[in-house]
């Protein structure tokens, strides 16, 4: 491998069979022709220029490429883009609205839940999947839910605090409604 990110064209030469797929990404249907071997992480980053999803280890270990697939967290470097046909994918780009950060993003900011930021998109989506199932997690439950995501900077303390901060804010918001 000559560089960290390899170009995989989403418009391959005409003799290569492609599949037309429609994937709902952050609420918007995107239709693309993909070669079956293209990974979802590469479609997002190189094909659709959504570089918020990071590829770290590229071997299903680190969780930096985590996105939500029909609401559940998956490692997008370990799924083929064709497999997402007809499914909903949420990436870090889908967290904030035009005017407001998502409470999880606010939590990472307030509690200094990142240093270099490389693992952060995956951490936030894994956290979102947890909070959608359990808005009142214990510290242990947060650590458990994030145990598939590696961070080499923070020592995890502030990431856990950030998720607990977000949970509290989201509980408060839910209480107001």
């Amino acid at each position: 491998m000559s560089s960290l990110y390899e170009e995989v064209s989403t418009a391959p030469a005409s003799d290569v069979p492609v599949r037309r797929v429609t994937i709902n990404i952050n609420g918007e249907n995107r239709t693309v022709d993909v070669e079956p071997r293209l990974l979802l992480a590469h479609l997002l980053r190189q094909g659709l220029k959504m570089t918020g999803t990071h590829t770290g280890c590229d071997t299903t270990n680190c969780g930096a490429c985590t996105v939500l697939f029909d609401g559940r967290p998956i490692k997008s470097c370990t799924m083929l883009a064709v497999q997402a046909d007809g499914h909903a994918v949420q990436t870090v780009e889908g967290l904030a609205t035009a005017s407001e950060l998502h409470p999880i993003q606010e939590g990472f900011k307030a509690e200094h839940g990142l240093q270099c930021g490389f693992c952060t998109p995956g951490m936030m989506l894994a956290a979102k999947a947890l909070l959608e199932e359990n808005l009142n997690p214990t510290e242990d439950e947060v650590r458990w839910a994030l145990s598939g995501n590696l961070c080499r900077c923070t020592g995890y303390q502030n990431i856990v605090k950030a998720v607990l901060w977000a949970a509290e804010k989201m509980r408060a918001q839910a209480g107001q409604e």
Partner: peptide, 9 residues
């Protein structure tokens, strides 16, 4: 088995 994210799939 593996980690929580691998287990969803």
């Amino acid at each position: 088995v593996a980690d929580p994210i691998v287990r969803t799939r």
